[in-house]
């Protein structure tokens, strides 16, 4: 049976997804959006509004900082950079998720054993 994605579950991890993308290098909104689309092969579409509220939230928690780029053509873009606090938060979130996953697997797949 083919699986479907649980939108709620995914939305709960938006912040972690964003932090993960910013881990490698700074990016602006559309880059982040595109890299999420590329990674899911278009199987799941996150609304951009969800991302924008994630940026605002992460900014408030000082996990990321925003700055305007100095593009010479086509209008300036707003970039996001992960902070040290953001890196710590990311590691914590991943650890939390792995733990949750283990527990969930034990609970949900009990019959298979």
């Amino acid at each position: 049976m083919e699986g479907r994605i649980s939108a709620d579950l995914l939305r709960g991890h938006t912040d972690t997804i964003v932090l993960g993308i910013l881990l490698k290098n700074d990016a602006y909104g559309y880059q982040i959006y595109k890299s999420i689309m590329d990674r899911t092969d278009g199987l799941y579409q996150l609304k951009e509004a969800t991302l924008y509220s994630s940026y605002k939230r992460l900014e408030k928690e000082t996990c990321i900082v925003a700055y305007w780029g100095d593009e010479s053509q086509g209008g300036r873009r707003k970039y996001y950079r992960i902070t040290d606090k953001g890196r710590v938060q990311y590691k914590q979130n991943i650890a939390d998720w792995e733990f949750t996953q283990r527990i969930l697997n034990r609970l949900l797949k009990e019959e298979d054993d």
Binding site: G29, Y30, Y33, E48, Y52, G74, G75, R77, K78
Partner: peptide, 9 residues
């Protein structure tokens, strides 16, 4: 401004 430029892209 941010939304506009992202939409444009």
């Amino acid at each position: 401004e941010e939304i506009i430029i992202n939409l444009k892209d």
